[in-house]
């Protein structure tokens, strides 16, 4: 049985697509057959982050409309075995997604042997976001340590537990929080919300904390999911998060200001 994971946030620009790319790559690197679906119809970005924008021929909407089959639309990742990308359509809008259409494709993917289906949600709480979350078994709620992002995440969690298919059946969607762009130094100065503040407000399980890092932007621009950068704290933090997602006990890192050692101070090596 495939596990359907939605990566959502409510607010835009917090790192949903970066997270979808990193998490799906991470799961596939551990040997699970994984597909990542871009639900952001009309504003597709996942293909760029995954560096497959030139290989898009058919897309998600084509498959829903029966203009292509899944096999034609799925793009095999060049870096990781077992990873496939289902890109969004750039020329349509969110209304192209229907509950029946999405369900049919998820079922086809599950029947095809995919173990994990990652749904990259668009921002907002409208139709596109709703379609991405409706069938989810687990939700990764991405938030930045700032008040407006946390408020929006709270709203999304409420919608998730009341409007998704699991909620309609009287079950709960498993939820977890991924805090991105975390800067322990700014937290220490009181300029940013701390992990405990956010955890307290959202009252949900913490999947991981991704430190703010230049490597994330660089990775996005180069089309290499940041999890491949095993040197960078952000890549390592994503790798830890994937471990936790798959049930491993991994201690949280990168949450406090690191005392710079003599060597680090000498070489001023910045992450």
């Amino acid at each position: 049985m495939a596990k359907i994971i939605v990566v959502t946030s409510g607010k835009g620009g917090v790192g949903k697509t970066t997270t979808s790319a990193a998490i799906s790559s991470g799961i596939a690197m551990r040997g699970h057959k994984t597909v990542v679906i871009d639900f952001d119809i009309g504003l597709r970005n996942l293909d760029i982050i995954m560096n497959c924008e030139r290989r898009v021929v058919y897309d998600f909407v084509n498959v829903i409309n029966g203009e292509a089959n899944l096999r034609q639309a799925l793009i095999k990742d060049k870096r990781v075995e077992n990873l496939y990308i289902l890109p969004a359509s750039q020329t349509r809008d969110k209304d192209a997604l229907t509950v029946d259409g999405v369900e049919r494709i998820l079922n086809e993917l599950a029947a095809d042997g995919f173990e994990y289906i990652i749904c990259d949600s668009p921002a907002g709480i409208e139709h596109g976001a709703f379609m991405a979350m409706y069938f989810a078994d687990l939700a990764i709620v991405v938030a930045n340590p700032e008040v407006s992002s946390v408020r929006d995440s709270d709203r999304i969690l409420g919608i998730l537990q009341s409007k998704s298919r699991r909620a309609e059946k009287g079950e709960r969607v498993e939820e977890c929080l991924l805090l991105t762009r975390y800067n322990p130094e700014r937290v220490a100065k009181g300029e940013m919300l701390g992990v405990t503040d956010v955890e307290e407000i959202l009252a949900t399980k913490l999947l991981g904390v991704i430190p703010e890092s230049e490597t994330v932007l660089k990775a996005s621009n180069q089309g290499i999911p940041v999890i491949h950068d095993t040197e960078s704290p952000a890549g390592q933090a994503y790798s830890d998060a994937v471990g936790r997602l798959l049930g491993e006990e991994v201690e949280h890192r990168f949450m406090s200001v690191e005392q710079k050692g003599l060597f680090q101070r000498l070489f001023r090596r910045s992450a």
């Binding site: 408020r151 709270d154 969690l157 409420g158 919608i159 537990q161 009341s162 709960r172 959202l202 009252a203």
Partner: peptide
């Protein structure tokens, strides 16, 4: 369960107890 932003919960005719 926690009552999230945007949710509304009403207890008609009685008390409302929220354990979150």
């Amino acid at each position: 369960t926690p009552i999230r932003s945007g949710q509304q919960v009403y207890a008609p005719g009685g008390d409302l107890i929220i354990m979150a």
